Amino acid sequence: MNRKNLRIRMAVPEDAGTLLKIYEPYVKNTCITFEYQVPSVEEFTQRIRETLKKYPYLIAEQNGEILGYAYASPFKGRPAYDWAVETTVYLKVNVRGNGIGRQLYTALEDILRRQNITNANACITYPNPESIGFHEKMGYRTVGHFTKCGYKGGHWLDVVWMEKFLQEHSDKPEAVIPVGELHLQDMP
């Protein structure tokens, strides 16, 4: 796959139907996500809207075809956690392994740094050597392993948490800037 024409842009709520088609096989056929039911388009649209209030929700597309997406969400709901996020990436199954996830995560991390985010965290079903290997290549390290904490597909599943520091931890961190307040014209 030629990545030269790959364009990364911010999602809009109208992308929900297409993004849901990418997500659906992960819900139905894997334990990668712990959702049991595929969300409705309306629910997925609302998820995008909620995310964009504060965080980036990025899409990778080539020649008008959406190939994948990545976004950040709150790590926890308390104000002291504002500088930490959970990162997520999903690709069309047939385009995995072509560097698209790397480009999405790189763009996501760049925006998060501009927002003053310091910690990126990924929650990964275990075992999942593809995702763990991807995150390791992106500079994440395993910081936690939770045993049999999820149940899907007829069996108990572990999760690992991986973490990456996106920038230095200041003694007086600057406030997190909502993504809508950034000037993103120079987004890759």
Rank of each mutant, 00 (worst) to 15 (best):
Y126R: 07
T118R: 12
R3E: 10
G17A: 14
T147F: 07
S40R: 06
M162E: 11
E163H: 15
I59Y: 04
D15S: 14
R102Y: 14
P39E: 04
S170V: 06
V93Q: 13
N128L: 05
C149R: 03
D15L: 10
G153M: 05
K152F: 00
L19T: 04
K54R: 15
I22W: 04
T18I: 14
E61L: 03
A107W: 01
Y151G: 09
L58N: 04
G17L: 08
Q37K: 11
N5F: 12
N98F: 13
R3K: 13
E109H: 14
V159R: 02
L184T: 08
G153P: 01
L20C: 11
I177K: 06
F146W: 08
F165K: 15
I32S: 06
E65C: 08
R114V: 06
T147D: 13
S170R: 12
P13Y: 03
A107C: 07
G101Q: 02
G133A: 09
Q103V: 10
N2H: 11
L104W: 01
D171G: 13
G139K: 02
E168R: 13
E43N: 12
M1N: 08
M10P: 04
V12E: 14
E86P: 02
P79K: 09
I117G: 02
P13M: 09
A122C: 14
L91N: 05
E61W: 00
R78T: 12
A72R: 01
Y71E: 03
A60V: 07
I66D: 06
V27K: 00
I48C: 08
K53G: 14
Y126F: 15
W156H: 06
Y126S: 09
S170Y: 09
Y151E: 10
G99K: 13
V176C: 06
V38G: 01
Y26K: 02
N63P: 01
K148H: 10
Q37I: 15
P25W: 05
N116M: 08
K172Y: 13
T88R: 02
V27I: 13
C149A: 12
R96D: 05
R49T: 15
V41H: 01
E130I: 13
R78K: 15
P173M: 07
A60E: 08
Q115C: 05
K28E: 11
R96P: 03
E109W: 00
P13L: 09
N2I: 08
I177D: 04
E65F: 04
K172T: 15
Y36W: 07
L20G: 05
E65H: 09
H135G: 04
G77A: 05
A80C: 08
P129K: 05
N128F: 03
H145M: 11
P25Q: 09
K172W: 12
F134A: 03
Y126I: 11
L182W: 03
H145F: 05
N128T: 06
E24R: 12
N98Y: 14
V179C: 05
E42K: 11
T30W: 00
I111Q: 03
I32C: 06
T106I: 10
P56G: 04
P178Y: 08
L104S: 01
E14S: 15
A122P: 00
R113P: 03
N94V: 12
Q46H: 11
D82L: 08
T125E: 12
H155T: 07
I8Y: 00
M187A: 13
D186P: 03
P188A: 10
E130A: 15
C31G: 09
L58V: 03
W83M: 08
F165V: 12
G180Y: 11
P56D: 10
G144L: 10
Y151R: 10
